[in-house]
């Protein structure tokens, strides 16, 4: 009943004490190591630390390193192929599993498509190692084919997610309207469904590309000799004394992934507006 009331900041319903601080720390912790890694890629010294001045020499070294060139080309080749194949397959599957009345087996299809997300990568890697070893010893066929199909498989769920989300947000009436205007189902698909689906397909393929580009475990297990990708090359290098060259490669790879994800983010933001 004391009329004097202490002046305090207005009561906020959503505030929880300390949460902002922890969140801030989390963001710092998420980015600090990555930023450190990038910074030291410009180190002039022979080792990662201490800092001995700014230099681009490690980028030059990486650029001139034939093993790196070779692994980079292979990584890109693999990621592009896996990205395209998995997107095509995922698009078809998404068309077959969305906007439909539940039919028998639908749940099984979902489970199957999402299965690579549930099984630990190491188990899939071992399984593929065994399978491919069997096939190789039976038929003698070698080549990139194995890596491509493995990457395609585990990229499917990542490509599937955004495409399916896009399809579910789409207005069914548009296609009905097209059919009403005498478009054949095929024409409707090419002229109405596919263009509308396009942002989802772009997002899906980019995700698939990034996922394939970043894969270490499965590739490490099933690659034959001479089939290093950039990540497996780096994993191999980590066993030795590491030079800032690894930082330089990492920075480039990071830059690639981050620009793809940023691009996705802004494309999605614009398409929502």
């Amino acid at each position: 009943m004391i009329p004097f009331i202490k002046k305090r900041p207005p009561f906020s319903l959503k505030r929880q004490p300390g949460f902002g601080l922890i969140a801030g720390l989390c963001f710092v912790m998420l980015y600090a190591p990555i930023i450190t890694l990038v910074v030291y890629s410009f180190n002039a010294g022979k080792y990662i630390s201490p800092w001995e001045g700014f230099s681009l020499q490690w980028y030059v070294a990486a650029w001139g390193n034939e093993a790196v060139q070779d692994a980079t080309m292979r990584s890109l080749f693999l990621a592009v192929q896996a990205g395209i194949y998995s997107t095509v397959l995922a698009t078809m599957a998404a068309l077959g599993t969305t906007r439909t009345r539940p039919f028998r087996g639908l749940m099984a299809i979902y489970a199957m498509i999402n299965q690579p997300l549930m099984v630990p990568e190491i188990v899939t890697a071992v399984a593929l190692l065994i399978l491919f070893a069997m096939i190789k010893s039976l038929t003698g066929i070698q080549g990139m084919f194995y890596l491509v199909i493995a990457h395609t498989a585990f990229c499917i769920p990542f490509a599937y997610l955004p495409i399916r989300a896009r399809l579910e947000g789409m207005d069914l009436n548009l296609e009905t309207a097209a059919a009403d205007l005498y478009a054949t189902p095929w024409k409707t698909f090419w002229r109405v469904t596919l263009p509308l689906l396009f942002p989802g397909i772009i997002a899906g393929s980019m995700l698939a590309f990034v996922i394939s580009l970043d894969d270490v475990v499965i590739t490490e297990f099933i690659k034959s000799s001479g089939q290093e990708t950039l990540p497996t090359y780096m994993l191999g290098q980590l066993r030795r004394v590491v030079t800032p060259e690894i930082n330089a490669i990492s920075t480039v790879l990071l830059g690639l992934s981050i620009s793809v994800v940023c691009l996705l983010f802004f494309v999605e933001r614009r398409s929502r507006k």
């Binding site: 009943m1 009329p3 009331i5 002046k7 305090r8 207005p10 009561f11 319903l13």
Partner: peptide
């Protein structure tokens, strides 16, 4: 008679 403007809910 009590000013509650600054009191939390």
């Amino acid at each position: 008679d009590r000013d509650i403007s600054q009191l939390p809910p």
